[in-house]
Design a protein around this nucleic acid. Structure first.
Lengths: 119, 119
DNA sequence: CCTTTAGGTATAAATAGTATACCTGTAATA
DNA sequence: TATTACAGGTATACTATTTATACCTAAAGG
């Protein structure tokens, strides 16, 4: 991410070290910036939450989205899915250490968003 | 964002303070988390950059995307577009104070992304 | 019985992003 | 002089992601 531009004598510029394909910012955003992903992680910050509770917490997201996002996060090792009860099926989702490691960024984002009244 | 769940005597849970529609995290993400938006802001951190240079810096994004994102950011007052030369047309984009205010979050995201080798 | 809850899945429609080509005008190159 | 290259975009068509809505199985409550 050290790309910069140089200007020649004619005022023209050239990129010296363009970041090829997704750079770190972009890669990070594709994980926690996916639609609903940040909210999902943030709502798991206080411990295990059940599927339908997450669904209710994230007003606006459909079950399909929540399901998909949780599966992505699980596949990345950021979230752990546990079946706590069969028969009356019951499942909880919770953050792993890796999942927790993203919380600081999300908290800062929340503060920023509130401070500048982002809508 | 103080939603929580309570458990009744039968082990059932209910959401007490669901965040209605997009909460602060989600609203923030929709600004700086849009595809390419974070990278775009980050690449403007050292001062004005011209359109085609941004295009080259963000390998992978099309001009259309860059154009669209810059227009969104401009509309939100995070980026300033300046025509520095007519005839041989030349335009630069730079961050406003509001735009700069997002840089800390992006820098943390970059560090996180690199630390945990997010791909 | 009928409805509600849990944890999802199926289908279709709407929205967002990508690839590719092209436009106007200036300037350097062959 | 003809050709090509660059600036800053726009147009078109296509693909992928997200949304809305309905539905499924099983258990429990009224």
């Amino acid at each position: 991410m050290k790309s910069r531009i140089e200007t020649d004598g004619y005022g023209r510029k050239k990129v010296i070290d363009a970041c090829m394909e997704p750079c770190a910012i972009e890669r990070g955003m594709r994980i926690i910036g996916g639609k609903w992903t940040g909210s999902l992680i943030y709502h798991l910050k206080d411990g295990p939450v059940r599927f339908n509770d997450l669904n209710r917490m994230l007003g606006g997201a459909t079950k399909k989205m929540i399901d998909q996002r949780l599966k992505e996060l699980e596949a990345r090792g950021m979230v752990l899915r546990t079946v706590i009860n069969d028969r009356p099926i019951a499942v909880t989702y919770e953050l792993t250490e890796l999942g927790r490691s993203a919380l600081d960024i999300l908290e800062d984002l929340r503060l920023w968003s509130e401070k500048y009244d982002i809508r």
